[in-house]
Design a protein around this nucleic acid. Sequence first.
DNA 1: TTTACATATTCCCATATAAGCATGTATTAT
DNA 2: ATAATACATGCTTATATGGGAATATGTAAA
Lengths: 115, 115
Amino acid sequence: MYYSPMARAATTSDAFNAVAEPRRRDILSYLALQERPVGDIVVALGLEQPSVSKHLRVLKDVGLVRVRREGRHMLYRVNAEAIRPLHEWAGTFERFWRHQLQKVKERAEEKMTKV
Amino acid sequence: MYYSPMARAATTSDAFNAVAEPRRRDILSYLALQERPVGDIVVALGLEQPSVSKHLRVLKDVGLVRVRREGRHMLYRVNAEAIRPLHEWAGTFERFWRHQLQKVKERAEEKMTKV
DNA sequence: TTTACATATTCCCATATAAGCATGTATTAT
DNA sequence: ATAATACATGCTTATATGGGAATATGTAAA
């Protein structure tokens, strides 16, 4: 078997790769409030329709959004559950940034008492 | 000026793009515990040394890690503060997945009382 | 059945990898 | 000064975009 370079993981490989694209984060934030048809996203974010459809495809492939049809409209909504892994991974570092802030605070207080 | 397509945002454009690569998340998790030289990461994660150096370069460029030299060793450590934006963005969806879980729970309880 | 509307898909192309391999650069040891 | 150690960087290559433009698909309205 020959060498096959995985230049960069596919955007559809997981939620991390999918949300790396800023427009996709914008779309998710917009959809967070409420289920919406594609056209609304196009107008709200000022993007081209094909571009929005492609981004939605990626989001759907990784389970970050769900769709249902209503007449000519495709109503997309966020599947928040799929964002949890991201939140939890980042959360494993929470105690470290708290610790860093604590040290900054301590130094500030030390400076105050010295005055 | 001509059209210049940004095929995909640079891995160094922000923390979101930097952590999209699984190996870089592995490196961050490994460094979370403690400051480490490059060689330790190579051994611990079983990657090629140039590969680790390049990943560290990306992480450093977006401020996810800091370095200091100690003799021949370059000691890398996590800058947890840079992971916060990620945690906070994902956190804006927390109430939605809680809400989803709540509905699942309610349906389950409804089913129980019906029996 | 045309027509209009809403969305999805295809094709093209410049760009940015990530891994492998080779080589350059510090810094310490001999 | 030379060798060895620890990293960083450069080069090549196959791959996966994301935007633009055009076109296809699906549904409802006339």
